[in-house]
Design a protein around this nucleic acid. Structure first.
Ligand SMILES: [Zn+2]
Ligand SMILES: [Zn+2]
Ligand SMILES: [Zn+2]
Ligand SMILES: [Zn+2]
Lengths: 143, 143
DNA sequence: TTTAAATAGGATAGTAAGTATCATTTATAA
DNA sequence: TTATAAATGATACTTACTATCCTATTTAAA
C-alpha cells in the first residue's frame, strides 16, 4: 500500500458505457456493448470501448468474464456470483447460487499453488434453445 | 442413435499428437503441442495440429480446456477433474479434488436452463512464480 | 486567464489464435 | 489396379483484441 490507485476520470463515454452495461443482464461482449453505446454516441470508436472496459475492470467497477467461449463478456454486478452458459447460442445468465467459499480452502490443501479464488460456470441449454430444439424434433418426426 | 459415429482414422500424426499429449501433465496449448510434435514430425503443419486436436476432442479421446485465459489447452485425461491456473505465467495443473456432482443439481433448481454440467477452475500462483515473486521482493528491499 | 501537462478519444494499423481453402498425398475399397 | 474417400501441409483468411498516433479535452500551474 504505497501508491494510491490512479484516479479514473468519469468521462461521457465511460458513463454511458457503464449505464448501458448496467441496463442489461445479458453479460454482453465488447462488440455488443459497442453497438449499444453507438446509439447514444455514434462517433465512439471500438478501441475506446475496449480501452474503457479494461480500465473499469482494473478499477473494480465492472467484472470481466473470461470463462468458456470465444469472447470476453462484461458484467456490472461486481459481487462474486456464478453463471450459466448456453452451449447452443452462447448466451449467459446469472445463477443465484451461494458462492462456495470453502471450496477454495479445500483446493488449497490439494495443491502447491497459492490459491486466490475460483471460477465456476455451468453449461446447459437456455429456454429459447430448448424450445427451438423441441420444435425441430417435432418437425423431423412429422416429416 | 441412427447414424454410427464416423470412424476416426488413427494416422501417424494423430498417434504422435496423442502420445505427446499423454506424456505431459502441463495441459499444453495447440502451439506448444505443435512444437513438441515437430521434433518427431518436422514437416507437420500447424493446421494439422489444430484440426486433429479438434477431431480428438469431438470423439472424446481428449479434453479441451477453455475456461479463463487466452488460449485453449488440451488434456489427455478425460475423466472429469478440476484445474488451477497460475495468474502470472498461465500454467495449469490438475487439482485432485472430488468432483462436485451435486452442485449441478443445486444450480438446476435456480435456473430455467437445462443444466448439462459445470466447469470449475481455481486461480492462484504457481510455486515457480511464488519463488520469483519472493526473490523480486527481496531484491527490492535490499536495493 | 493563459498556458502547460496529463489524460482520453477516434482512426487506423497490427497481432495472434484459430479456421477455411485447396492441391497433393495417403489410405481404403471395389 | 483403380476409384473413392479421407487426411495432410501450405497458405490465405477471419476475428477478437491491442498498440500506435494524432487530436481533443480536461486538469493544474503560472
Ligand atoms: Zn441458447
Ligand atoms: Zn453476472
Ligand atoms: Zn506461474
Ligand atoms: Zn487435467
Amino acid at each position: 500500500m504505497n501508491t494510491p490507485p490512479s484516479m479514473v476520470r468519469l468521462t461521457t463515454q465511460r458513463q454511458i458505457l457503464l449505464e448501458e452495461l448496467s441496463k442489461v443482464n445479458t453479460h454482453p461482449t465488447a462488440c455488443e456493448l459497442y453497438k449499444m453505446v453507438q446509439k447514444r454516441l455514434p462517433r465512439i470508436g471500438l478501441g475506446t470501448v475496449y480501452r474503457n472496459l479494461e480500465i473499469m475492470v482494473d478499477s473494480g467497477i465492472i467484472l470481466k468474464l473470461e470463462l468458456g467461449g470465444e469472447q470476453k463478456r462484461f458484467d456490472a454486478t461486481t459481487e462474486p456470483h456464478y453463471h450459466v452458459r448456453c452451449t447452443v447460442c452462447g448466451k449467459m445468465d446469472d445463477v443465484t447460487l451461494q458462492v462456495q467459499e470453502e471450496i477454495t480452502k479445500k483446493a488449497a490443501e490439494k495443491t502447491s499453488y497459492k490459491i486466490i479464488g475460483h471460477l465456476l460456470e455451468f453449461t446447459g441449454e437456455c429456454p429459447d434453445c430448448q424450445k427451438a430444439q423441441a420444435a425441430k424434433t417435432k418437425e423431423a418426426d412429422t416429416a
